[in-house]
Every structure is written in structure tokens, then in C-alpha cells.
Computed example of a mutant assay.
Amino acid sequence: MHYRRLGSTGLPISALSFGAWVTFGDQVPRDEARNLVAAAWDHGINFFDNAEGYANGRAEQVMGDVIADLRLPRDGFCVSSKVFFGSAKDPRPTQRGLSRKHVTDACHAALRRLRVDYLDLYYCHRPDPDAPIAETVHAMDTLVRQGKVLYWGTSEWSAAQIEEAVDIAARHNWQGPSMEQPQYNLLHRERVEVEYAPLYAHAGLGTTIFSPLASGLLSGKYDQGIPADARLGREGMGWLQDLVLGQNAAVRLA
């Protein structure tokens, strides 16, 4: 396994990570989840990616349970969570977003579900137009100073929003964002390669990308339609099916 530093930080994470989205909490049983995490660990993966919204928090609970069951050494792996969508099926206003309250509450809930004392990486899962960026940056800085988060970052934020967060943190001597988690694959390159490019050197931004195979499209598995056991065929995944099939049509037209 290859390991790379996270942006300008000193944290070495595996070039491949293992994430809990879709599969954990809903699709695979706990014993299979345990086998998957064990296989990832045995092959050198040290970064396990999660979010409060995955299966309404159940994915993080499964991840925490199997990591504890496997007795992985806490100093040997990195675990993440993300805050924005909330973990309730029908979240109330204070149960979602990037207010200081929800950023803090969601961190504490993730710690309980993942059964850890701190999060290695903590992401703002989407930008929140209703929360001042300064409030979110301050909340993240507080969690870092409390030892509950080591590094925080963003996911699907614009370069301008990340730049604002970096500038606010610098002015107040707060901990700024260290990483962004964008979609990046052969069909989605501009944001990573063009929009974020000035931030890599200027802000020391690192990336932990998602969907490198465009949700399976680039693997060729959907060339003949949607297999019965594919995630696109699962209940509630119509939005992803429309997205992937739309991408496939675009590729064929190109």
C-alpha cells in the first residue's frame, strides 16, 4: 500500500480508503462488514471514511463495532465523520447544518457511534448557506483545541468558500481546513484540477476524493444495464441511478 501525506499536514494516510456509504448499516450484514474491514486493514488501508448521514448513523455504528471487535490499534488507523445532513430520518432545524450547535452535537454523536475518543478527520459535508462560515470555522477550532478532532475539512465546497474559511482561520489564529473531499474521476476533473489548484500550495489543501469510478460507471458494470445486485437498483437510489445513467449517455454521445 502507498501512503501519502494529507496536504501540508504530517498525517500519512493510505492511497486507498475504505468507506461505509450505502453498504454499512443497510446492505451488508455485520459479519460481512467485519470481514471487509479486516481485509482492508490486512492490505494496508489505514483510513476508514464515514458520515453522520450514512444510513442515518447506523453505518458509523457498524464501523465502530467491527473496528472494536477486530481490536485494531487506535494509533494505527484514521477514522472520519462528516457533518451537515444529520442522522435523523426527519431532522429538526438544529439537527442538521453547520451551526456551532450541530457541528458540536454531531461530533459527540460520531464519537459514540464510532467508539473512539477523537476523530482523525471531520468534514463539513456540504456548505451551509444558513450558517456563517466564521461560526463553523470557530466551532471546528474549538473541537480541535478540545482534542476531539485532529484535522477538519470540507466536502463539495467551492474554492471561494474554502478560501474564506482559510482566511478567517488565519486572522483569528484558529485551526483552518486541511482537506477537501470532492468527487474526482475521468468524468469530473475540473474542480480538482482547475478550481482547487491555487489552494494546494497557498492553503496546503489536501484531498480525499470520492467516486473515483463514477459510482461504478467507469468499471463497465453498467454497459449492459443495471445488474440485480448493484447499488443503483436498490430502493431509494433512484437519484444516483439517474445521475449515473445520465453520465453514461453523455459518455456515449462523446
Rank of each mutant, 00 (worst) to 15 (best):
S8N: 14
G246W: 07
C124W: 07
M140L: 13
L98I: 03
L70H: 03
P198Y: 15
M1D: 02
R252E: 14
T142L: 06
N248F: 07
D120H: 15
S158M: 00
R74P: 04
V103F: 10
A254L: 01
D31V: 01
S14N: 09
E60H: 11
V194M: 12
V22W: 11
D31I: 04
R126I: 00
G64W: 07
A39K: 13
L187A: 06
G76N: 05
Y3N: 05
T104Y: 11
D69L: 05
N173H: 11
Q27A: 03
R71N: 13
A68N: 11
G204C: 02
Q95S: 08
S158L: 03
H2Y: 13
Y222H: 09
H125D: 04
I67W: 01
D242V: 00
N50Q: 10
F18R: 02
A55W: 05
G57F: 13
T207N: 14
H43Y: 05
S158E: 01
H2R: 13
R74V: 01
L245C: 09
G53Y: 08
H138M: 08
Q241K: 13
G233M: 15
I133S: 01
E163W: 13
Q95G: 08
D49R: 07
A88M: 09
F84G: 00
W239S: 12
I67Q: 00
E195G: 03
A250V: 04
H202F: 06
T142W: 06
A139K: 04
P129I: 04
P212Q: 08
L111C: 05
V149H: 11
G10C: 12
S81W: 10
S81N: 12
L6T: 04
D42G: 05
A203P: 07
A139H: 10
Y222N: 08
A55R: 07
N46E: 03
P29E: 08
G204K: 00
A40T: 07
R30P: 08
C78A: 06
G57M: 08
C107Y: 02
L218M: 13
N50P: 08
Q175R: 10
L111P: 07
D167P: 00
F85Y: 15
H202S: 15
G86F: 07
L119M: 14
Y200L: 01
V194T: 13
C124N: 08
A228Q: 12
S81L: 02
L186M: 14
L70N: 09
I133E: 02
A249H: 11
V83L: 02
G44C: 11
S178W: 02
R58Y: 07
S211R: 14
D90A: 11
S158V: 01
A106D: 02
P177F: 13
Q175N: 09
E164P: 04
L119P: 05
K221E: 12
Q224L: 10
R252K: 15
L36W: 06
P132L: 01
L119V: 05
